[in-house]
Design a protein around this nucleic acid. Structure first.
Lengths: 370, 370
DNA sequence: GCTCTGTTAGAAACTGGTTACTCGCCAGCC
DNA sequence: GGCTGGCGAGTAACCAGTTTCTAACAGAGC
């Protein structure tokens, strides 16, 4: 009485009954498939599918039989097969340059949470600040999912532009692609830097040193441009730029060189660099902000808990992730996509900045050999 | 001259030539499929597949034709279709209770990096410390991938045990499943706590307050057990347990209550709680470690950069992720799986702990109204 | 009672790949 | 010269679902 659908046995008597090859490996549990359930319930695969998806109307009795069979076999539809048939994976991808950076960790979290609310999963990949790898990863990750978020991509503009079509639906974070229709969420780093500089200038600082971020970071270029713009404004204003990086260690190593510039205030690429520099400055016997002021960027959670708490510009990291999801979701549904947004950083004045010291902070003062 | 394989057109003249329905939505780019490439190169799909995978030998001339066609069409095999056909996704999943916790962020990073080295991607999900959600997520995530890592799962033992078969290949972090064959990597929290207590006792502390972690955390239970074991050893030794949590805020809020216990040292569930508590204690006018000592657990990157730097127990977070991959990889390949490991935390004595103060640290001292 | 219509569920095509079989062809050997 | 062996490539089954098309059947209307 089996209503076995004919797709499988290619003639049950004339063909050699080649033993069913098992795929999985592992124990002998025959994995429940839709065919097995259909057989058990005495219906066709189509009907099982309809019951599982609640689409179309199926006679109550059949529904019951199918549900019972599914239950008994512990059946759960294969997401992979559904993905193929439906042409969507219910997954989106995120690519970040550096998973160790709290900024990206929070973006990840925001995106993951927002996507989860809509029943989507998140695939994560790290490009290790490597533009070449990033491009490859992006294409691959995109094909495994329904959409892609590129956070602070390091890919050159030209390449990004030519890639953008293959990557759609695509959302960019901290990177704009002028003239394209790719939605972009970014932080107005220039505005943040301007506020930071104004704050330092108000404290009397005239010589700033900037601990620069990764070469390929466009947001680093934004910061530098804003600093230079500020530099030409004031009379007797000096700006020194120091190649640094994006990590604790980078900041820590740059401390000595920063002091050597004679600057009275350090503007760090981000909070992590600022922490590293702060630690290095203290090891050199300097008091913060007594001898030298320092600012960060991002307002990562730890910024308010260090001592002194760090003066920094706050950006809505989590919100960047959430809104990235919003844009992606809109794109995926062909709906209207909200226009680009530039989040305005909020200056948080804490205790790592203060008035310029009376005498230049070039030597060690407090600790160490007096 | 097309060697069109017959699987598609069900008779090219007798059937109504139903227009090919387009799926994707988006622009008019006909997505390159293996069939299209096969047609363009004038070979069968099988041959294209063989060329793409480099398996079996194909005549050089055909290889060239196929490569050229693939190039021209910008063809890239569909990972989803390959996953279905091959029965593997080249993806593994990680489920963590809380993405905001640096501990899990580092595990994520270690796992992601290690998996990437073997060409695998990572699917991430967060259970929000919710055991029910965790179980559902685990099953779903597992089905989308080839293996699963459960970090500090909050699922009750009974349920985890019954689920473990469906989740295999499965690796547990910070959770053991006695009697099962599920590999487990954990941290010997008890040993770490023992070291911390010994360190504090050596400084003369006799009254400790423990800021307790999440209810469902088994590693929290391990810590508590170790504390109690230590408590019965010493004479005149007092241990107070305070329900707290796992976050900054939890620690911050617990500061006042911690001081009220009259303890001379605070043992925090983890570094984040310790930071929160430190911040709160300072707001109460207390000097650390002058008035009160405090310890953390995990040695997250910031621990050495706060001031005072935090005395804590270091655990190899990244390594947990990497080794989890190692176990998973072994399981997936049916190879022998290395035995379970309990990482021994390393006590890092920094400046947040010191000798017990002469008089009890119950009031404000340094700052505030003198 | 017969036709028309609407509902239900099965058959089969389809998603885009991989791979076990098989067949044709050419070289080597007896 | 015929048989065999090996190699290369096409055929078709298969992965596990979804969905269009269609056949069967029941009820309504004439």
């Amino acid at each position: 009485m089996s209503s076995r659908t004919g797709d499988r046995g290619r003639g049950e008597e004339d063909a050699p009954p080649r033993p069913p090859r098992r795929r999985g490996g592992h124990p002998e549990r025959a994995k429940a498939t839709i065919s097995r359930v259909a057989d058990a319930a005495g219906v066709s695969r189509a009907t099982v599918s309809r019951v599982m998806n609640g689409t179309s109307t199926v006679a109550p009795e059949l529904v019951a039989r199918v549900r019972a069979a599914a239950e008994a076999l512990n059946y759960e539809p294969s997401p992979v097969a559904r993905s193929l048939a439906l042409g969507r994976t219910s997954t989106v991808s995120l690519i970040v340059p550096d998973l160790a950076n709290p900024m990206f960790q929070d973006v990840l979290r925001g995106l993951s949470n927002a996507a989860a609310e809509e029943g989507h999963r998140l695939l994560v990949a790290e490009s290790n600040e490597n533009a070449g790898e990033e491009a490859i990863l992006a294409v691959e990750a995109r094909r495994r999912s329904d959409g892609l978020v590129l956070a602070s991509p390091r890919v050159p503009e030209e390449e990004l532009r030519s890639l953008s079509e293959r990557l759609a639906p695509l959302v960019l974070l901290n990177r704009e692609l002028p003239g394209s229709s790719v939605p972009s969420l970014s932080v107005d780093y220039a505005a943040g830097i301007k506020e930071i500089v104004a704050h330092l200038v108000a404290f009397g600082h005239r010589h700033l040193v900037y601990l620069s971020g990764p070469e390929a970071s466009t947001s680093n270029r934004d910061r530098i441009a804003a600093l230079h713009a500020a530099a030409v404004l004031g009379p007797g204003f000096t700006l020194t730029e120091l190649a640094c990086g994006a990590t604790f260690e980078d900041g820590h190593q740059a401390a000595r060189a920063a002091v050597a510039t004679g600057a009275t205030a350090v503007v760090a690429y981000n909070d992590m660099v600022a922490f590293g520099a702060m630690s290095g400055l203290r090891e050199l016997g300097l008091d913060i902000p007594g001898d030298i002021s320092i600012t960060g960027f991002d307002d990562i959670p730890f910024a308010r808990y260090t001592s002194p708490p760090l003066t920094t510009a706050s950006i809505p990291r989590n919100e960047l992730g959430r809104q990235a999801w919003g844009r992606l979701w809109a794109l995926m549904n062909g709906g209207p996509v909200a226009h680009n947004v530039r989040f305005q950083p909020r200056l948080l004045v804490r205790d790592s900045t203060g008035p310029v010291p009376d005498r230049p902070a070039s030597g060690r003062r407090r600790k160490g050999s007096a």
